[in-house]
Design a protein around this nucleic acid. Structure first.
Lengths: 206, 206
DNA sequence: GCATATACGCTACGACTCGTAGCGAAAGAG
DNA sequence: CTCTTTCGCTACGAGTCGTAGCGTATATGC
């Protein structure tokens, strides 16, 4: 994207332009959607020339990915003292993130592109999926030290449990927000957490 | 899409063309993605003129929705005599369908575009999502007549239960297959079904 | 101070796509 | 046979992506 390193020779790039362009991209994405977003429009919103966009990102796709990736590093695992509170907190965070139209469009576009591009797929898994799995691992560990969950019998069952929990939580929330189109209300989060808590202990025993 | 009914006056449409066009659409979608798919290319693959496409579907969006919807109509709800067996069967069916790269790319491309286009989103919900919910409804009804599940207290709680079950099952399977990229082994299906069965009875009571 | 090298804004352009229109020909219905 | 619709083909207008060329602005290295 930006040149690899250090100050080189000619006129340096406008440092503010990157942020303005990415912000303009997110704004246009929210207003017009992916299909309605045009490079000329983004350039106008950011107050730069279209050629400046292409000087920094090689294509429209790359620009949009960069614009949303900047927003995606917000998720954190809270330790609220109980498993139920932790789950509800992370579900609420995730749902809030997915309620932004620009995040929806960019995430799905990213996944769609990733099905045909193994390199991009690997990048998505490393920079988005794996970090989120660590949230599940952290939450489970905290619950185990509190005695809310039994310790894992072995490494293998623990890994399987993390996988299935992660897919269930993330998949269900994503499906509700993006496919069914229903918002994640506090009532729904509570109901879903209840549904999830019941079998959690059995899962660890395997 | 196709004319509402019966044989009319002029030259009848080529009956084979519909299937050939839809198959060509899925093929192109898997190879090129949404952005790469063009009407001219689909027409060439199907061996028809571009105008024939527009004579049968009003736009590119509608064509792709029809192509994907046709493939998802294969899903059926088996009545194997127990709720657990029924769930495992439908999950296995769904997972098998999603293991084909062609279906993966097609579904994700469609969902991605749907987030950007509210009209397309509505079409997806009507012609793909709602029909699939019938599987959940049928499975629940069968389990209720067998006495495995209590009858619904009222229409409203039944609808809410169907929604949350559908989001959980479809979302989890989709997430595992498309995002995590792990295959749905028999062990995984069994474990997921166990996770699902525990709270099902409570859900109906609401 | 001066040459060098890059970034910037602007305009124009080629290539491509969507979706439409018009044409002659084909193929069934009545 | 007549009428109606579909078919393939070609051409077109509008719009977009991404690039090229120009003159200008702003930094570094000597």
């Amino acid at each position: 994207m930006t040149p690899p390193s250090g100050p080189r020779k000619g006129r340096p790039r406008n440092a503010d332009a990157d942020g303005a362009i990415l912000a303009a991209t997110r704004e246009a994405l929210a207003e017009l959607g992916w299909g309605g977003l045009t490079m000329g429009d983004v350039a106008a919103r950011a107050g730069v020339a279209k050629t400046t966009l292409y000087r920094r990102w090689p294509s429209k796709n790359e620009l949009v990915v960069a614009a949303v990736a900047e927003q995606l590093d917000e998720l954190e695992m809270a330790d609220l003292g109980s498993l139920r509170a932790d789950i509800e907190a992370v579900v609420a965070q995730f749902a809030a993130l997915l309620s932004a139209p620009e995040t929806q469009a960019a995430l799905l576009a990213l996944f769609a592109e990733a099905t045909r591009d193994p390199l991009l797929r690997r990048r998505v898994r490393e920079s988005i999926i794996e970090p989120q799995k660590r949230l599940v691992i952290a939450g489970r560990a905290a619950a185990q030290t509190r005695g809310e969950l039994p310790m894992d019998a072995c490494e293998e069952t623990a890994s399987a449990a993390v996988d299935i929990i992660f897919d269930t939580v993330a998949g269900t929330v994503v499906h509700r927000m993006l496919v069914s189109g229903e918002p994640a209300t506090a009532e729904w989060i509570s109901a879903f957490t209840t549904l999830l808590l019941a079998p959690l202990t059995e899962l660890a025993v395997g």
